[in-house]
Write a protein that binds this DNA or RNA. Sequence first.
DNA 1: CATTGCTTTTACGTAAACGTCAATTCTGGT
DNA 2: ACCAGAATTGACGTTTACGTAAAAGCAATG
Lengths: 132, 132
Amino acid sequence: MSKTYTISDLAREFDVTTRTLRHYEDQGLVTPTRDGINRIFSHRDRVRLKLALRGKRLGFSLNEIRELFQLYDLAHDDRRQLEEFAVKLERRRAQLEQQREDVEIMLNEINFFAGQCQRLLTESGREKPVTT
Amino acid sequence: MSKTYTISDLAREFDVTTRTLRHYEDQGLVTPTRDGINRIFSHRDRVRLKLALRGKRLGFSLNEIRELFQLYDLAHDDRRQLEEFAVKLERRRAQLEQQREDVEIMLNEINFFAGQCQRLLTESGREKPVTT
DNA sequence: CATTGCTTTTACGTAAACGTCAATTCTGGT
DNA sequence: ACCAGAATTGACGTTTACGTAAAAGCAATG
């Protein structure tokens, strides 16, 4: 008997609304069982939610995320599915490597601009010195 | 007299539709001049487009991107604007560092799964050997 | 000069990812 | 028994980022 979560447990923990969790169920990203009418989320659901939110931060759509989940679930037996999975993983990898590059470039730019800002701010600070 | 571009020049180069470029003009991301009725994009527009598309790949909204452009344009004189700019840069930096971490995690996962796939595929390849 | 090709504006359409009621229902506590 | 605080299911609304179709204007080319 492993740990379970209510909808608001997960909502709190991951800082999303309950609406979001219901929506993710509709989209097949999580598959909570029921206690009567109430949703019960498993540890697996929690993991999937975490993965989904990471995917989202990286700009993936819920469809893409679900597709990966499905392929991961199905790809164990079927060879065709497995090959398809491998292909999609390659695409993702390429995309992620592009993204890694983008992140580095932007971080460099931001560091540069932040430096400029600091310079300008401290300069104008000296022009108009504080009374302390 | 520096180089200029037509709408389809840029569309081709960056692999977007002309509709997208018009939309970006509406949103104030690019500011082409006119030759009669036709748009003429400058080098500056090209740079901004490139920045905008990088921002998009990282999941930023057009609003956020435009905001950064505006702040960058205005932040040279006004100290308040400059401080605001610095604050927003910090937020972006935090977000990008989160994203960098996300990318690394996902790349590791993908590498792991891709490895599994290869293993399974070559295994099943041996079970059913090719006739060559 | 007619066609082809690229451009324009206007304007409605759409998919994704939830937000936001509304109307109930359930449950724990007093 | 009763009330407050979560939970539920619809179902319509909203924002973003374009897609798409329609109607029209220039420009070169055969």
